[in-house]
Computed example of a mutant assay.
Amino acid sequence: MWRDLLPVGRHAGSGGYRRYAWTAADADCRAWFKAQAGARGLTYEVDRNGNQWAWLGDPLAGNAVVTGSHLDSVPDGGAFDGPLGVVSSFAALDELRHRGAQFTRPLALTNFGDEEGARFGLACVGSRLTAGQLTPEKAYELRDGDGVSLPQAMERAGHDPAAIGPDPERLARIGAFVELHVEQGRALDLSGDRVGIASAIWPHGRWRFDFHGEANHAGTTRLEDRRDPMLTYAETVIAARREARLAGALATFGKISVEPNGVNAIPSLVRGWLDSRAADESTLDTVVAGIEKAAMEHAERDGVDVRVTRESFTPVIEFEHALRDELNRILGGRIPVLGTGAGHDAGILSGSIPTAMLFVRNPTGVSHSPAEFAGEDDCVAGVLALADVLEGLACR
């Protein structure tokens, strides 16, 4: 399975993946998922929001146990973030069939669409729509860098965008969702453990900073006469690092758009996207407020106008303690429990159904990069742990 999926959406130049929502690479990933479901005799379906499902047992019976993750990627992302959870879900089912497990609850494997938000700027679109955390009206406003709207992209890919929206009937049939994911950090590597359990997801959000200045000639305009938004943006990036360091939080400007984007032109507009995360919402608010304050102060000095728009926000998510404790019990009670600063579909769904997460060791700690890695032995340990969990939940 891993060998079949590995080439899909891989960029020859960077070695990373560009599996963006509703593109050809995404279609290839979806075809792979459908083929895996068919090879195992599972009932395959795509829901109204474009999420894929493969069912063992009656999908309408209720109290189902669901596992899976996502197959899309960030720009030039790694091979493991998302796909490891989907591949492992099929491998865990194979393991349970090898054991002769007798299922007493329906089991579903899933691939949630557009988890990374790389194309339309909003993470977890598929699960947000399903859980009612993203309205169809707001979803219709999403556009990619070329101005293509989400419904246009979905329609071009053969999916009816008129049907998107909350899916409470589907969620009501799910008794538990368990997502396996490569760890995005080195906690397991430092502790020497192969597998961990998630405790909570830090609150996090994305903010767009628009710095409006004045376009002018780079070779003739005196420094004193410039209204250069790039200068203000650069100072804001430095301020973000300072505010995050002082608060023990995280803040990153990882995406930028410049107009007119000429080598010999002073920009008229610099647009930068801030990603910030912290252990609690109060700290996060303090960090973002400090960054905004610094941006405004530098903008006034530089003769630049600044507008800040919060594009997304996810509050702190505590995974349900009962399900988390049940996973620990099934796995022998000696599994490390870890917090994480990364968002996931399991976090979005936690407000609607009981959810939990398993982490697989990442020896480098690198994620969202071609250097992202997990050893084969650790991946196998993750599959076996997931199989044990599914057996404990769905076969009793």
Rank of each mutant, 00 (worst) to 15 (best):
V182D: 02
Y17C: 06
I266T: 14
L150T: 03
G205N: 03
A139T: 00
A371V: 00
A215I: 02
A387L: 09
P229K: 08
E224I: 14
H11E: 13
D325N: 10
T43E: 13
A162Y: 07
S199V: 08
S369M: 04
G113C: 11
T286K: 12
V306K: 03
R10L: 06
D388Y: 07
G303H: 05
P363T: 00
A279Y: 14
Y44A: 13
N51H: 00
D275N: 11
T340Q: 09
D146F: 09
R324S: 15
A54N: 13
R396K: 13
G290P: 12
A265C: 13
Q52Y: 03
H11V: 06
V389N: 00
H217F: 09
D305T: 09
L96R: 11
P267E: 06
L384E: 08
A215L: 03
A101Q: 09
R226K: 06
E376Y: 02
I201M: 13
G339R: 10
L142K: 02
R170V: 05
E297C: 06
L5Y: 13
A215S: 14
A289F: 02
Q102F: 07
R30G: 04
D305R: 11
D285N: 15
G77V: 10
P354W: 00
A54L: 12
V148C: 14
G165A: 03
H204S: 12
A251K: 08
N362R: 07
